[in-house]
Amino acid sequence: KELVLVLYDYQEKSPRELTVKKGDILTLLNSTNKDWWKIEVNGRQGFVPAAYLKKL
């Protein structure tokens, strides 16, 4: 499993997105899109802007 660090808080703006908090370490599911990465948070899957995340 690949992990990502959340660099900035992000509030979901659609049902396909997820809310994340700065400092969270989460599972990366897909990073093929350069702008939006798919991650998992508490069993939910969704997208967060790639600029808000850093691969560990």
Rank of each mutant, 00 (worst) to 15 (best):
K1A: 12
K1P: 15
E2M: 13
L3H: 13
V4T: 02
V4G: 02
V4A: 08
V4P: 00
V4Q: 00
V4R: 01
L5T: 05
V6M: 02
L7V: 07
Y8H: 15
Y8E: 13
Y8N: 10
D9L: 02
Y10W: 09
Y10H: 03
Q11G: 08
E12W: 08
E12L: 14
E12T: 10
S14K: 08
S14I: 05
P15L: 08
P15W: 09
E17P: 09
T19L: 04
T19M: 06
T19P: 03
T19E: 04
T19C: 05
V20T: 02
V20Q: 00
V20R: 00
K21G: 05
K21L: 09
K22N: 05
G23M: 03
D24H: 07
D24N: 08
D24S: 12
I25C: 05
L26Q: 05
L26V: 15
L26S: 08
T27N: 11
T27M: 13
T27D: 06
T27P: 13
T27Q: 13
T27E: 11
L28R: 01
L28M: 04
L28H: 01
L28Q: 01
L28Y: 02
L29E: 03
N30W: 09
N30E: 14
N30R: 07
N30C: 10
N30P: 03
S31C: 10
S31Y: 11
T32M: 12
T32Q: 14
T32V: 11
N33G: 11
N33H: 13
K34Q: 11
K34N: 15
K34M: 11
K34L: 12
K34D: 12
D35C: 10
W36V: 04
W36M: 07
W37V: 02
K38H: 13
K38E: 15
K38Q: 13
I39C: 12
I39D: 00
E40K: 05
E40A: 09
E40R: 06
E40M: 10
E40W: 07
V41E: 11
V41H: 15
V41A: 15
N42V: 07
G43K: 06
G43S: 08
G43P: 02
G43R: 05
G43T: 05
G43H: 12
R44E: 11
Q45K: 09
Q45A: 15
G46N: 02
G46A: 06
G46H: 05
G46L: 06
G46S: 03
F47C: 09
P49R: 05
P49V: 02
P49Y: 02
A50F: 02
A50K: 07
A50N: 03
A51R: 15
Y52F: 11
Y52S: 07
Y52P: 01
Y52W: 07
Y52I: 12
L53Q: 00
L53G: 01
K54E: 09
K54N: 06
K54T: 12
K55L: 15
K55R: 15
K55I: 14
L56N: 03
L56E: 03
L56T: 06
